[in-house]
Design a protein around this nucleic acid. Structure first.
Lengths: 112, 112
DNA sequence: AATAGATGATCCATTAATAGCGCATATTCA
DNA sequence: TGAATATGCGCTATTAATGGATCATCTATT
């Protein structure tokens, strides 16, 4: 299995990470917030915030989302109530879905 | 500074992570894909995929995005070309923005 | 131009994340 | 129901992520 470090990433995943980092940086600057300030508020180190803004795929998703939340970047283009609603809806749907999948070999789509 | 493990997380960040995990699980099942299959295709271990689907905030964002991409879940409601465009646009905007931010002074005002 | 401050990068110690098992349970399908 | 297999979870060794410090450079403001 590939080491976490040099993990091959699809273009989409890489781009999504990069974009998210950019959005955080933009939002932070627009709010005239210092990297150090954002780090402090998010409970992260300054270095980590810098890596987040660079789109480093190794950052913990919790850290990234927290930083994003603090500067007001909305994930899924939705506010908190909407997220809660979606979570609830999904819980119901997931309950209705098969709990385990019997390999019906669908062919891969790696090309995106 | 808080240890990465018990890092306090805002409701929004936590919900976003949970929702993302749910969506991955849903999409995986809908595609009749096994956890092991998804893990293999994403280059991750089975255990990690399970944590991703549970919304564990400690997972590397690269791993999460990769799994999400493979099952077709998109954080940003846009395809890859659009992401690339957004990244480019942001690069321009960021270039036009101040490169460092003057900390908002929280000086005590005792003059009134 | 001078200066205070922000950013970016590097290094190290600590700690957590991950892979890779194995095992029990749950679940799908014949 | 029985058989196959997917899932869930715990364990350990290894590896990477993180925090914290320092330093050099860049930038904004006076």
């Amino acid at each position: 299995m590939a080491k976490p470090a040099d993990r091959p990433q699809s273009r989409y995943a890489r781009d999504a990470g990069l974009l998210l980092g950019q959005l955080v940086r933009r939002a932070r600057i627009e709010r005239k917030m210092t990297v150090a300030e954002l780090a402090e508020r998010a409970g992260l180190s300054r270095g980590l915030v810098q890596r987040i803004e660079k789109g480093d795929p190794g950052c913990a998703i919790g850290a990234v989302f927290e930083a994003a939340a603090i500067v007001g970047v909305r994930l899924f283009d939705a506010g908190q109530p909407m997220l809660a609603g979606a979570i609830d809806a999904n819980r119901t749907i997931l309950a209705l879905m098969p709990r385990s999948v019997r390999a019906a070999r669908i062919e891969a789509r790696d090309d995106f």
